[in-house]
C-alpha cells in the first residue's frame, strides 16, 4: 500500500520531468516583433489623443484669456451690472453665486449624507434598497434642464418662491443631491467591515459605530464628492434659465428671497447679446475666467483632501 503510493508518486514526477525536458512551448520571434510593433503604434495613438485634448483646452484658454485682458480688473469685480460695457461689473453675480453655494452646501450635505447612511448602514438588504440605489444612479445622470423644470414647478410655482436665490439654490440642490448620495455611499462602503466589527464587539450601538468609526474614515471621501458636486452646481446655467432668472438685474440681492443673477447666467446672457454689442463678448470672457478660477480652486481643494487622507487597510 505504502510502497504503491510511493511508486505512483515517482511515476508522476517522471512524467512531469519528461514534459519539462521536451520544452513544448515554442516561441515565434515574428509574433513578438508584431506585438512590439503594435505596442509602439498604440503608444503613439494614445499620446496623440492626449495632445489633441490639451490643444483644444489651450486654444479655449487662449481665446478666453486674450479676450478678457483689459476687462478683468477690480472695477469689473466690484461694480454692479450696467448696460454700458465699460461700467459693467459682476459683483451682483458673485453675490448671487455665493448665495447659491450657501444654500446648496448645507442642504445637500445634510440630506445627502443622511440618505447615504440610511441606505448603507440601516436599510435591510432587499428589493426596495436595490431599487432606490439603481434609481439614485439614474437620477444622477438626468440632464440638468429637467431639474430646472422640477424646480420651476415645485419651488417657483407651488411654493411661490419665484426666481429667488432660495428657489435657485433648492433647484440646484435637487440636481446635485443624487451625486452626493452616490459618492457618500461609496465612501461609506469603502470603510472595511472589520473595523465596524471591532466596534460592535465592544458593545457599541450602530449609531455610535457610524459616528465614531465609519464617518471619520469616510469623511475625506464624502467631502471630496461634495466639493466636486457643489462645483458642478455653481457652473450650471440650464436649471437657472428655466427658473426664469431675469436677464438684467441692477440690484445686488440682500436676502435669499431676492431675485438674483449668477456667474454662469451672466456668461450666458452676455454671450447671447454680444451680437448686438461687441464688448459683451469681453465681459463674458472675463466672467468665465473668474468662474474657472473658482472651479479650479474648489477642485484643487478636493484633490488635496483626497490625497492627504487616502489610507489603505
Amino acid at each position: 500500500m505504502e510502497f504503491e503510493a510511493q511508486l505512483l508518486q515517482q511515476l508522476e514526477i517522471e512524467k512531469d520531468r519528461e514534459i519539462i525536458n521536451r520544452r513544448p512551448v515554442r516561441i515565434d520571434p515574428a509574433r513578438i516583433r508584431r506585438r512590439v510593433w503594435l505596442n509602439n503604434l498604440l503608444q503613439r495613438v494614445f499620446s496623440l489623443s492626449t495632445a489633441f485634448a490639451i490643444a483644444v483646452l489651450a486654444i479655449l484658454f487662449y481665446q478666453i484669456i486674450s479676450q478678457s485682458i483689459g476687462w478683468l480688473d477690480w472695477q469689473f469685480l466690484s461694480s454692479n451690472l450696467s448696460i454700458f460695457p465699460e461700467k459693467a461689473g459682476i459683483w451682483g453675480a458673485i453675490v448671487g453665486s455665493i448665495g447659491l453655494i450657501l444654500i446648496v452646501i448645507p442642504v445637500t450635505i445634510v440630506l445627502g449624507v443622511s440618505t447615504a447612511i440610511y441606505l448603507e448602514e440601516y436599510a435591510t438588504e432587499g428589493r426596495l434598497r436595490d431599487f432606490i440605489r439603481i434609481n439614485l444612479s439614474n437620477l444622477a445622470s438626468v440632464p440638468s434642464v429637467i431639474f430646472g423644470l422640477l424646480g420651476l414647478s415645485l419651488f417657483g410655482r407651488i411654493l411661490h418662491l419665484g426666481s429667488s436665490i432660495l428657489a435657485g439654490g433648492l433647484t440646484l440642490s435637487l440636481m446635485v443631491l443624487p451625486i452626493i448620495v452616490v459618492s457618500a455611499q461609496e465612501a461609506i462602503r469603502a470603510v472595511p467591515g472589520f473595523l465596524r466589527d471591532g466596534s460592535y464587539a465592544m458593545g457599541a450601538s450602530k449609531w455610535t459605530t457610524i459616528w465614531k468609526v465609519v464617518l471619520p474614515i469616510a469623511l475625506p471621501g464624502i467631502l471630496t464628492g461634495s466639493i466636486l458636486s457643489v462645483s458642478r452646481a455653481i457652473g450650471e446655467t440650464a436649471p437657472l434659465v428655466v427658473l426664469g432668472i431675469p436677464a438684467l438685474i441692477m440690484r445686488v440681492p440682500t436676502s435669499v428671497m431676492d431675485d438674483f443673477t449668477a456667474l454662469p447666467i451672466q456668461i450666458y446672457y452676455w454671450t447671447l447679446d454680444s451680437v448686438l454689442t461687441r464688448e459683451y463678448a469681453n465681459l463674458a470672457s472675463a466672467t468665465i475666467v473668474v468662474l474657472l478660477l473658482v472651479l479650479f480652486l474648489m477642485n484643487s481643494i478636493a484633490i488635496i483632501i483626497r490625497n492627504k487622507f487616502q489610507k489603505s487597510y
Binding site: 472589520f194 473595523l195 466589527d197 471591532g198 466596534s199 474614515i217 487597510y313
Partner: peptide, 8 residues
Amino acid sequence: FQKPNPFP
C-alpha cells in the same frame, strides 16, 4: 478577531 483590527 483573526486579523488584528485596531481603529486608524
